[in-house]
Design a protein around this nucleic acid. Structure first.
Lengths: 164, 164
DNA sequence: TCTTGACTTAGAGTTAGCTCTAGATAGTAT
DNA sequence: ATACTATCTAGAGCTAACTCTAAGTCAAGA
């Protein structure tokens, strides 16, 4: 009934099997390959792609690098460095060190946004309780919270309060 | 020498002044307006935009919502709710509550990525010290660290190790 | 043999969020 | 008067990362 492309597990996986394992679409897998992210994928005598366990490991690494905010072309650069061997260890270390710094900055940024959003959540909860946004804005507890959260010397909000 | 458009501070700011204050480009400010994010901006008798302090407050709010991951059309929706008054308090509260959940998930995700990147940084530091990536991979301390970080039951990396 | 379904390719289309261009106007400086 | 600068509009162009289309190949099942 079901027509499954068998790709002889000892030799690797078909693109359909990789789709199931990774959740990526076949389109995306071919796109990644065209962009140089999967330089190890081979084809069988019929022209079908055969993915090895190493290719799946690379897809996992690509996912990690993407999640860290790297662009496709930067991931390709990393893979090229990998293929060049130990002479590029320093470049790759630099890339990871830079990623860590970017991630740290991003997490700090998100924490600032989180504080603002949480304040708004409190503000609107109070507004619903009191019946209007204006009443909540004039609420003493809300004003104290706002002062506590945003009246630090270098916060932009000290000068320009957010609307809404 | 310098030709500054004077927009009578008591009545507001020119687009050039807003560019300086916000760091956004004039193109972007007009684009936001076209997309419905600045429905309060008026024009003077010459057809030039005049921004008020309220508009600057909205730009600050827009920045916050964008930073929280909201799309432009979702921000427009929020602004429409705001203009509709207290009858939409619940929708706005829901939006903020949802934002907080999304931000929490995003921060958790970033922490996972951070662990992986930090491991890679340690791995490559060791590789440079030992002279090759293979030597670092075989290093006992590295293997212990890898086991400690990634051998939890539901980590994908338990089954598919990352390459590179 | 015919059909089905998974695969192949080259290349076009999509989306978000800008970013820029061209040509016009209005006010200021020399 | 002339030049300069800031602004205006409509609409085209750009980038990243997909996402899809059309037309074709290939192997297995009824």
């Amino acid at each position: 009934m079901v027509n499954v492309v068998k790709s002889d597990k000892s030799k690797g996986f078909s693109i359909g099997e990789v789709v199931k394992q990774t959740g990526l679409s076949a389109h995306t897998l071919r796109y990644y390959e065209k962009e140089g992210l999967l330089p190890f994928v081979t084809k069988n005598s019929s022209g079908l792609r055969v993915y090895t366990t190493t290719d799946l490991q690379w897809l996992s690494m690509i996912e990690c690098l993407k999640d860290s905010g790297l662009q496709i072309k930067e991931i390709r650069q990393y893979i090229e460095w990998f293929r060049q061997g130990d002479s590029t260890l320093q470049q790759r270390l630099d890339l990871f060190a830079n990623r860590r710094k970017v991630l740290e900055a991003e997490m700090a940024r998100l924490q600032v946004v989180m504080n603002k959003i949480t304040f708004k959540e409190t503000l609107y909860t109070t507004a619903i309780k009191l019946g209007s946004l204006e009443a909540a804005d004039n609420d003493k507890a809300i004003q104290r919270l706002k002062k506590k959260l945003f009246d630090s010397p270098d916060d932009f909000d000290k000068r320009i309060q957010e609307a809404g």
